[in-house]
Design a protein around this nucleic acid. Sequence first.
DNA 1: CATGAATGAGAGTTCATTCAT
DNA 2: GATGAATGAACTCTCATTCAT
Lengths: 204, 204, 204, 204
Amino acid sequence: MGISDRKERDKQEMRKNIIDAAMHMFTHEGYESASIRKIADKIEYSPGTIYLYYKDKDELLYDVQAECFSKLVELFQKEATDADPFKRLEQICHSYVRFGLENPEIYDLMFMMKSPMKNVHEHEDWENANDALSYLAKCVQECIEKSLIRFEHVWMAALSIWGMGHGLISLQIGCRMKIMDMDSDQIKEAIYASVSNYLNQIKQ
Amino acid sequence: MGISDRKERDKQEMRKNIIDAAMHMFTHEGYESASIRKIADKIEYSPGTIYLYYKDKDELLYDVQAECFSKLVELFQKEATDADPFKRLEQICHSYVRFGLENPEIYDLMFMMKSPMKNVHEHEDWENANDALSYLAKCVQECIEKSLIRFEHVWMAALSIWGMGHGLISLQIGCRMKIMDMDSDQIKEAIYASVSNYLNQIKQ
Amino acid sequence: MGISDRKERDKQEMRKNIIDAAMHMFTHEGYESASIRKIADKIEYSPGTIYLYYKDKDELLYDVQAECFSKLVELFQKEATDADPFKRLEQICHSYVRFGLENPEIYDLMFMMKSPMKNVHEHEDWENANDALSYLAKCVQECIEKSLIRFEHVWMAALSIWGMGHGLISLQIGCRMKIMDMDSDQIKEAIYASVSNYLNQIKQ
Amino acid sequence: MGISDRKERDKQEMRKNIIDAAMHMFTHEGYESASIRKIADKIEYSPGTIYLYYKDKDELLYDVQAECFSKLVELFQKEATDADPFKRLEQICHSYVRFGLENPEIYDLMFMMKSPMKNVHEHEDWENANDALSYLAKCVQECIEKSLIRFEHVWMAALSIWGMGHGLISLQIGCRMKIMDMDSDQIKEAIYASVSNYLNQIKQ
DNA sequence: CATGAATGAGAGTTCATTCAT
DNA sequence: GATGAATGAACTCTCATTCAT
């Protein structure tokens, strides 16, 4: 028992190394640099070794994504703690937007790239996102229970709020905000303002 | 005069061919198939020929994007014609969402992929999107002038509406809706419903 | 007669245009930019037109080379005019070296690139270089006749002097002087000094 | 230890294969045939394999150049061994000229082509050439110390001798000797004669 | 005379992945 | 378990040249 435990532990450790290296490449050199070879180089293993732990690149990216999500959850747990559900909702949204704008490459991996989603099959769960979205969903549920927002269904509220936040962030990451006649800082301000404004609109 | 006219026409026609081929590949085989080689193959020309009309792939994609936007504008002009600005706003949103959900690869090219945006430099306009977004902006402006929606600034209203629509569509295109416990059709319904709901929320 | 004369004149004029454009590209953008297409673009003709005047690129380059040589001869005629043959020899060498160091791309075309020489066949003359090298040869001949240099044969003297000058210039143009522990200016000084020194050595 | 040694040996062997193939192509098919693809074909590997050993073509060519230089040094060590420094100098020059005339494509790579020099940056050493030129420099130094040649500075003597030799060889390789009214064999004779004559001129 | 669209061949390079060791 | 050499297919792009008009 002890032996197979250790093996499992070793395996997890190695996976962790791989993931950390990949995240570092994403963050610091852009997702275009995150090739299997370069990740392997970074941890000083051979490319082949990666395939002992992941069947293909998509699977690896899925795990990297998981790690990113746990960072996001940590952020929520640190920054979105107000007792008042609506205020907490505001905190969640603010953290989410900041996370996206400050970590565009990682946000891309989490919410935009198709590759990591290839292994989440129809009728399966996207486990990576569960905790983060539950955090939002629970908060939304409290808001609804206390009639703090103009929604009846939790799922529609959560989806709408997420949609609004994601929409604004991803337009910016994808350079589509160039159509607004603003510089980069102004755009970021506008995004924060739009989200705040939206929350005010749904407040009741 | 006639000659140079014809030449110009021929040139435009060829560009049109290239764009159509590229759009076809996008739509039917996914954006991964949209390599210069494959596009050239499709129109039965050599890869080099593409470079007589476009200086690089990004420039070509930018033009394909333009074509996509003109389809979207056409759609608006056909489907979003109600005299009442708020109803027209609803029509615009509905058309936009349907366009995105029915043409995911093309929507990707228009609003998500980075490549075609590389030739839109800082402080420049993203001309491709002008007409489509003006269509929305004008409608929003009328809504605000007639106090039909709970917004003061045109740009914030337009950005928010676009953000919400884009957010929901792009989450779906990027397979992130897998987290919702619904099948594909239910998700699409949920997106339409969320957008409608949002419009009701901002109605005043 | 008049008509065919004019045609010939026109033809020469066109060739001159092509050559000038090519030289300009060589000088200002490097020989790598001197593609047929770019030359044609520069004179606002089509690539095909070039082939009405030259059977291939090598032939064109040969003509560009001719133009370069006439510049060199002009330089000799302006700067190498001393009545004393040995002093004139010094002037010739100095002008030649300066020409090479100041116009490396053109020097390359004249004395290093293989392409323009492809149309000078075995047992044929390299006409382009005749005037420039005659200028040197005549000067050398006078030097020998007046016993100013330690050579008996004109051809060997001319070949040696040219060899020395060309050797030093082409090593520099080809970046081989990097082996000397000197910066760019020092190297150029060293080249001038070596040539002067050589002339002193052969002086008698 | 033994294992990593073998690995290193294997790696060096493979590099040697690549270099040999490249040299062979240079020698027998001309430098235009020395594309990555063709070199890979020759050793029956895929093009990508080359990039496991060299980061780009310039780096490969630089290594091929190194190999060429070691051949030249070998030649010096075999043929330029006279105890008398001046006689050794004559032997060096003779070997150098013969090497150049008999291996024009390789000489081109060593002393004329720009590509392999791209990785020798400003203020860096051109290591490949060190041994060969030291061989010359040491000999020249002895000559000067024993007052056998009319030079004071080692570097100027070496530069001049190299310049003369290189000038004559490279004019011939570049087909510029076509201007001399001689056939190929006569030209080679003339080059040897000119170099000998030069050495006599600087003898004191 | 001039066009200029088109070609075909080729360049260097990068990638995810495999597999004998 | 780990290696790392090797693959094969793909990529974007450039070029000298041709030829129907």
